[in-house]
């Protein structure tokens, strides 16, 4: 893996710049402006927020080009956009449009049930979701420059994000206890490239930044993700499906920066109106679990 190539270094470099920040889902320019004014480090353009995709059903695709362009024109922070898993043509369109990052996302309807996009061939950086370290390393092997734990998008429920963050953290620390010979069966068991497994065992971290996503609805949810080792947080439906998007967005930004200081998280949480209603994960069928998409 060419971690040292100039192309890969500038991809991971942008991911480094987004650390300690909040990346917010937006569906139009007005929302993007609210996000930027609240202190978002980047915005993610998509056609519908995950909670609406869940409620309305149908095929979820890359956002309308006009909407993404509107957003790119209006805000000065990086603009990301989602493509469907395996949909390399959507990815090429987004790259040609000039978005700053592509999220190959399980939130959209997968275009390929076996293969993800071969991301090394692109100049634009990609972020991909994972539930565990094997999935993370497979995506990095394909060229992803940032990983986000999946959580359960559109649920308003942090439980899956916690599960995935803890799984990644636990597996990183386990790999650190193995000797070189043991990393070979570990690589086989995780279905991950050996050289990436060796990197994690040696460095005690993923080779690219690891952010959290899926189910963040409150400042305390965001702080919890940071406590569990996330380097930044994606917030989807949690902001624009709440009763006070602007204040909630600013509060979550503050909580991510000051996650180690409960007094600041308290102050950020004070006076917020209703959070999004949310779903009981245990009542979802396997088919309704977006995080099961991708492998």
């Amino acid at each position: 893996m060419e971690f040292q190539s100039p192309e890969f270094r500038v991809k991971v470099g942008l991911a480094e710049m987004l650390k300690g920040g909040v990346i917010m889902d937006v569906t139009d320019a007005a929302q993007a402006k609210i996000a930027e004014d609240a202190g978002a480090a980047a915005v993610m353009a998509l056609e519908r927020v995950p909670a609406d995709i869940r409620a309305e059903g149908g095929v979820a695709r890359m956002a309308a080009i006009g909407k993404i362009e509107e957003i790119m024109k209006l805000v000065s922070i990086p603009v990301m956009a989602k493509c469907r898993i395996g949909h390399m043509a959507e990815a090429r369109v987004l790259e040609a449009l000039g978005v700053d990052f592509i999220d190959e996302s399980e939130v959209l309807t997968p275009a390929d049930e076996e293969n993800h996009v071969w991301k090394r061939d692109f100049k634009v950086p990609f972020v991909c979701g994972c539930r565990n370290i094997g999935e993370a390393l497979r995506r990095i092997g394909e060229g992803a420059a940032m990983i986000r734990t999946k959580g359960e998008a559109g649920s308003g429920n942090i439980v899956e994000a916690v599960r995935h963050l803890r799984a990644v953290r636990r597996e990183i620390s386990r790999l650190g206890t193995l000797d070189p010979a043991e990393l070979v069966p570990a690589s086989k068991e995780l279905q991950a490239p050996l050289e990436l497994v060796e990197y994690v065992a040696r460095e005690g971290k993923l080779p690219v930044p690891n952010f959290a996503a899926g189910g963040v609805a409150t400042p305390a949810d965001a702080a919890l993700c940071m406590m569990l080792g996330a380097e930044s947080v994606f917030v989807g439906s949690g902001i624009f499906k709440s009763e006070d998007p602007s204040r909630r967005a600013a509060a979550i930004v503050k909580a991510v920066t000051h996650w180690q200081d409960p007094a600041v998280v308290l102050e950020a949480s004070r006076g917020l109106e209703g959070a999004m209603h949310g779903l009981d994960i245990a009542k979802l069928t396997p088919e309704e679990m977006l995080s099961r998409r991708g492998w």
Binding site: K19, D37, A38
Partner: peptide, 11 residues
């Protein structure tokens, strides 16, 4: 450091 200046100003 590097990052988003608008975010830092807001904070």
């Amino acid at each position: 450091p590097g990052g988003e200046s608008t975010t830092m100003l807001t904070l």
